[in-house]
């Protein structure tokens, strides 16, 4: 829909529209499933730390906290397995799929483009550059806040999950070391995991804002690209 609008608008302005296929179907599917999982994780996670008002009535008929935790854990599985799938896609997918995992940090030109983008966001340059994939600044942010953040949340989250599954469970065996490595105090790991949620929320705010803004300002499609896969250049 949006892509069509973009196209119409471009046509109306009688400019050449160039389109490039950027995001392949599995990647787009992952993006939206992942977005849903994060939303559910953040909401349920918030209420795990600060539960809803107490329920009255027969205890055996209520399972509110149980359901909230169940949704949190189920969404966590979706998020974590999705992340593994995303890593797989980074290997077999096109080169855009690798962007959020590999930063060309030894490439001086890439860094200069990061600073160019930074100046663009600080209103210091007038014309935005166009990129087929992520712009370098976006790529850097994605890597720092999403990729690192996801690994951090998966490690701490499944370590805490392993506490419930118990000593010797798969989650305890695979992730239990995380709690010990972070000092061995489970309460502290809970707090750190909760901070991770707030960092993710900050990322989401910036991510959505930047996507909408760039869609309008840099004369290329962003939001529709994550739906159709095609990047439209509007002039």
């Amino acid at each position: 829909m949006l892509a069509q609008q973009d196209a119409f608008e471009a046509e109306r302005n009688a400019r050449m529209v160039k389109a490039v296929y950027v995001y392949e179907a599995p990647l787009r599917l992952w993006h939206w499933i992942n977005a849903l999982a994060i939303t559910l994780l953040a909401i349920t996670g918030y209420f795990i730390g600060k539960p809803l008002p107490s329920l009255a009535g027969d205890t055996s008929t209520q399972y509110l906290m149980g359901w909230i935790r169940f949704i949190h854990f189920a969404a966590a599985y979706v998020f974590a397995i999705g992340f593994l799938g995303r890593i797989y896609w980074a290997i077999v997918g096109n080169h855009h799929a690798r962007q959020i995992f590999l930063l060309p940090i030894f490439n001086a030109r890439w860094w200069s483009e990061v600073f160019y983008e930074l100046r663009w966001y600080l209103f210091m340059v007038r014309e935005p550059k166009k990129y087929v994939g992520h712009n370098p600044l976006a790529q850097l942010m994605m890597f720092l806040f999403f990729t690192i953040g996801a690994v951090y949340m998966i490690l701490t989250g499944f370590a805490l999950y392993g506490e419930g599954l118990g000593e010797g469970s798969w989650a305890d065996t695979m992730f239990g070391w995380v709690i010990a490595a972070l000092g061995g105090n489970s309460l502290q790991v809970h707090n750190m995991h909760r901070l991770g949620m707030w960092v993710t929320l900050c990322f989401v705010i910036v991510h959505i804002y930047a996507a909408i803004r760039e869609d309008i300002m840099s004369r290329q499609s962003l939001i529709s690209t994550m739906i159709s896969g095609w990047r439209m250049f509007k002039d």
Binding site: G49, K50, N191, M192, R194, L195, M197, W198, V199, L201, C202, I205, V206, Y209
Partner: peptide, 16 residues
Amino acid sequence: ADKVGGTAAAVVGAGV
């Protein structure tokens, strides 16, 4: 965590 995170989110939101 909620005060720190909430403040950060509010600052980011206001910044945006």
